[in-house]
């Protein structure tokens, strides 16, 4: 099926993309809270999305603590929107 992207087959990755699509940036802890995941699990999904260049990250310091925040890239936004469109069409096509 056109538009459906393999990277979004996992519902967790779809969740990450949804959250980043409506927020300029979100830090690791905020994502962790929204998605209710463990550190390791979230990190591995983030890494795979980063590899696709769908999301980017920037590191900074809040006081002395390192803080990693994530954002959606233009490619990511496009792929996500195409995925959404494809989902909608699939559902529409199957409705009587």
């Amino acid at each position: 099926m056109d538009g459906l992207h393999k990277a979004f087959e996992s519902r967790i990755r779809l969740g990450i993309m949804s959250a980043l699509a409506v927020n300029e940036t979100l830090d690791f802890n905020a994502l962790k809270e929204f998605l209710e995941l463990t550190d390791g699990n979230l990190a591995s999904h983030l890494k795979s999305l980063e590899k696709e260049t769908f999301i980017g990250m920037s590191k900074s310091f809040v006081g002395r603590k390192p803080n990693t925040s994530y954002f959606i890239t233009p490619e990511g936004k496009k792929a996500f929107e195409n995925h959404l469109k494809a989902l909608e069409q699939l559902i529409k096509a199957q409705l009587p």
């Binding site: 519902r11 779809l14 969740g15 949804s18 959250a19 699509a21 409506v22 929204f34 998605l35 959404l84 989902l87 909608e88 559902i91």
Partner: peptide, 8 residues
Amino acid sequence: LAEIRSMM
């Protein structure tokens, strides 16, 4: 789709 909407 429902989960995407709710997450957003």
